[in-house]
Computed example of a mutant assay.
Amino acid sequence: MFTRIFGKPKQDTNALTTLDKLNETLEMLEKKEKVLLKKASGEVEKAKEFTRAKNKRAAIQCLKRKRLYEQQIEQLGNFQLRIHDQMIMLEGAKATTDTVDALRTGAAAMKAMQKAVNIDDVDKTMDEINEQTENMKQIQEALSTPIGSAADFDEDDLEAELEELEEAELEEQLLQPATTAPSASVHVPAGRQPTRLPQKRTAEEEEFAALQAEMAL
């Protein structure tokens, strides 16, 4: 989206080209260093051969050339160190530039979006939303208002009637006995007692019978 509005972000082609050139130079110096190391090692081997051949002068010449190669190797090492330092500085500068460009692009995008949205339009939209919300509340209240015969009912009378029902229900619960007492046995003469099969009494009946026996005593 931002690319379509503002175009492609500008790249620092000069910095990229410079980094490529430094990399190429660094590779060239490393190759030369390897060649010089090989030459210095060769001069040492030649000096050993001349020493074994008792040719001291030729051996010293080989060591002199080795010293020259070593000086060039040290110089190449300094060059490489400077190039590395330059590359680090250039990469840091490029990162800083990219960061600033990104921040600038973001600020421009935010500014463009702010221009696209007018504060007056936002206020107007919010007023419309509030108005629609209030209208919806009024519609819901109108739909929930009783109409017809239901609108004639007095809420106070209905609440009073409900309280009477609750009190009547409470009184009925208080008048109910907690447990139903067993019916008292009727005394019948011995000769007239009907013959009944023995029934198994419950624990509650046995307890009640024991209580009656104690009272009789």
Score class of each variant (00 low, 15 high):
residue 67 R to P: 01
residue 106 G to N: 11
residue 91 E to T: 07
residue 96 T to C: 09
residue 106 G to Q: 14
residue 78 N to L: 15
residue 88 I to W: 08
residue 72 Q to F: 04
residue 61 Q to G: 12
residue 86 Q to E: 15
residue 76 L to E: 06
residue 104 R to N: 14
residue 68 L to K: 15
residue 65 R to G: 06
residue 87 M to Q: 10
residue 71 Q to S: 13
residue 86 Q to S: 11
residue 77 G to H: 06
residue 74 E to L: 14
residue 122 V to Q: 04
residue 100 V to Y: 07
residue 73 I to H: 02
residue 72 Q to V: 00
residue 60 I to R: 13
residue 97 T to L: 06
residue 57 R to V: 15
residue 95 A to S: 05
residue 71 Q to L: 13
residue 113 M to I: 10
residue 99 T to F: 13
residue 114 Q to D: 02
residue 73 I to Q: 02
residue 111 K to R: 06
residue 95 A to M: 07
residue 77 G to C: 04
residue 113 M to P: 05
residue 107 A to G: 02
residue 79 F to G: 11
residue 104 R to K: 11
residue 123 D to V: 14
residue 81 L to C: 10
residue 112 A to I: 09
residue 86 Q to N: 15
residue 89 M to A: 07
residue 75 Q to T: 15
residue 68 L to I: 09
residue 99 T to D: 12
residue 110 M to T: 08
residue 118 N to G: 07
residue 106 G to Y: 10
residue 90 L to K: 00
residue 119 I to N: 10
residue 117 V to A: 05
residue 63 L to R: 03
residue 59 A to R: 03
residue 56 K to A: 07
residue 111 K to I: 09
residue 59 A to Q: 04
residue 70 E to I: 08
residue 72 Q to W: 01
residue 82 R to F: 14
residue 70 E to W: 10
residue 89 M to C: 04
residue 90 L to D: 00
residue 101 D to F: 01
residue 123 D to Y: 07
residue 61 Q to D: 09
residue 114 Q to E: 06
residue 104 R to A: 10
residue 69 Y to L: 03
residue 57 R to I: 12
residue 112 A to G: 10
residue 116 A to M: 15
residue 79 F to V: 06
residue 105 T to W: 03
residue 109 A to S: 06
residue 92 G to L: 08
residue 91 E to N: 01
residue 69 Y to I: 00
residue 67 R to D: 11
residue 64 K to F: 14
residue 103 L to Q: 05
residue 120 D to K: 03
residue 91 E to V: 06
residue 120 D to I: 04
residue 98 D to Q: 03
residue 107 A to V: 05
residue 72 Q to E: 05
residue 57 R to M: 09
residue 102 A to G: 08
residue 81 L to A: 14
residue 98 D to A: 04
residue 109 A to P: 00
residue 105 T to Q: 15
residue 79 F to N: 13
residue 92 G to R: 00
residue 108 A to S: 08
residue 93 A to V: 03
residue 111 K to L: 02
residue 105 T to G: 14
residue 122 V to I: 13
residue 99 T to N: 08
residue 60 I to W: 06
residue 76 L to T: 02
residue 56 K to P: 07
residue 75 Q to M: 14
residue 118 N to M: 02
residue 104 R to D: 14
residue 93 A to T: 00
residue 61 Q to I: 13
residue 114 Q to L: 14
residue 111 K to Y: 10
residue 60 I to C: 08
residue 72 Q to N: 05
residue 61 Q to C: 11
residue 56 K to G: 12
residue 75 Q to S: 14
residue 91 E to F: 02
residue 119 I to H: 11
residue 114 Q to K: 15
residue 114 Q to V: 13
residue 62 C to N: 01
residue 75 Q to D: 12
residue 123 D to T: 09
residue 61 Q to N: 10
residue 70 E to P: 01
residue 85 D to W: 07
residue 110 M to L: 07
residue 70 E to C: 05
residue 115 K to S: 15
residue 74 E to Y: 11
residue 57 R to L: 08
residue 59 A to C: 04
residue 111 K to H: 12
residue 82 R to P: 05
residue 64 K to T: 14
residue 64 K to S: 13
residue 97 T to N: 12
residue 63 L to Y: 02
residue 70 E to Q: 03
residue 112 A to T: 06
residue 112 A to P: 01
residue 94 K to T: 06
residue 108 A to P: 01
residue 96 T to H: 02
residue 105 T to H: 03
residue 113 M to D: 15
residue 93 A to D: 10
residue 66 K to Y: 00
residue 119 I to A: 13
